[in-house]
């Protein structure tokens, strides 16, 4: 085994830790892709959904329910909220073909934030999780159980949804609606229900992300805004309409973030990611892995 310089080990440690956290960004970004595919809209308040999911999980666990049950409960809450956002903030604006939905999803998120501040308080809280305390060691790089849970959980949910998209009629119908809503209607698919379903699944994924991020960081109202931006960056860089590349972009952003926090100072954590995002948008608006858009008249 090669013994590496301690400095490089520390950097690698940072990169791995960030990359694992980046899987959570990828999961939230995956939620963006789901709703964008179905109805060409995303929730600018998705970070608030993550936060609400985390708080719902904390409260459920606080009543003495086992961890897994509270995670499931949080996901149900997230699904209901995702559906709600689509219903009140997106449907009308999209029917009128305007971009009011961007404002409206920001607004609904703001209300959620305020509710959380008043119901659960402004302070950060720990998220109780039944993970063992120690860490696993891979060639000198340690990975804690909660970090591993993020990666496994994110991969698990994404795989599950992808399988459902392929192997259930509901999933195939959602894909059909995103390819051609009118033709899907002609097959008897109610495109509105398919869009609602995508938003519910997207909300559930966000809430799940909250319950796995919680044990690593802490849970508080401030986590929301930054998460939206990061997940959205991941989705846009990967391409809002393509599944491929999401995980890579998520891991890359998480790693870059941690490394720049380590090298430049914790306040600068997010800066390089944002610069990369702006560059990516400027150079390839359709996303690094996305398809080119043809302008239609």
């Amino acid at each position: 085994m090669i013994i590496l310089d301690a400095k490089y080990i520390a950097l690698a440690q940072m990169a791995v830790g960030g990359g694992l956290m980046g899987m959570a960004y990828a999961l939230v970004a995956y939620g963006f892709q789901l709703t964008y595919a179905a109805g060409k809209a995303v929730n600018f308040g998705q970070g608030e959904l993550v936060m609400l999911g985390a708080f719902a999980g904390i409260s459920l666990a606080g009543t003495g329910l086992p961890y897994w049950v509270s995670v499931l409960g949080a996901m149900v809450a997230g699904a209901v909220l995702g559906w709600f956002v689509e219903r009140v903030a997106v449907r009308l604006a999209l029917k009128q073909h305007n971009e009011g939905w961007i404002l409206l999803t920001i607004i609904v998120g703001l209300f959620a934030l305020s509710s959380v501040e008043n119901i659960w308080g402004r302070d950060d809280r720990p998220f109780p999780a039944p993970w063992p305390a120690g860490a696993l060691d891979f060639f000198g790089i340690s990975v804690t159980w909660p970090e591993l849970a993020i990666a496994m959980g994110a991969m698990g949910i994404m795989t599950l949804v992808e399988l459902a998209k392929r192997y259930t009629m509901a999933g195939i119908a959602v894909q059909a609606v995103s390819a051609d809503p009118e033709a899907a209607e002609l097959c008897g698919v109610r495109s509105r229900s398919a869009i609602s379903l995508s938003w519910a699944v997207s909300g559930a994924a966000a809430a799940f992300a909250g319950t796995v991020i919680g044990p690593v960081t802490t849970v508080g109202p401030t986590m929301a805004a930054a998460l939206t931006l990061k997940a959205f960056s991941v989705a846009v860089v990967a391409g809002l309409d393509s599944g491929f590349g999401l995980v890579i972009a998520g891991i890359a952003l998480g790693a870059v973030e941690n490394l720049s926090g380590y090298v430049l100072g914790s306040g600068w954590r997010e800066a390089p990611g944002l610069i990369l995002l702006i560059l990516a948008l400027a150079l390839r608006p359709q996303g690094v892995f996305g398809k080119k858009i043809i302008r239609k008249v």
Binding site: A41, V42, F44, E99, I102, A226, L229, F232, S233, V236, L240, G265, G267, W268, E270, A271, L274, I275, L277, I278, L281, A282, P285
Partner: peptide, 22 residues
């Protein structure tokens, strides 16, 4: 287009606050 542009301005805004802070 709409959401991507909104995101690029949001990133710029976040970046500016970071720079001012740091």
């Amino acid at each position: 287009e709409g959401p991507q542009f909104a995101l690029s301005t949001l990133s710029f805004a976040t970046l500016s606050v970071i720079v001012l802070n740091e």
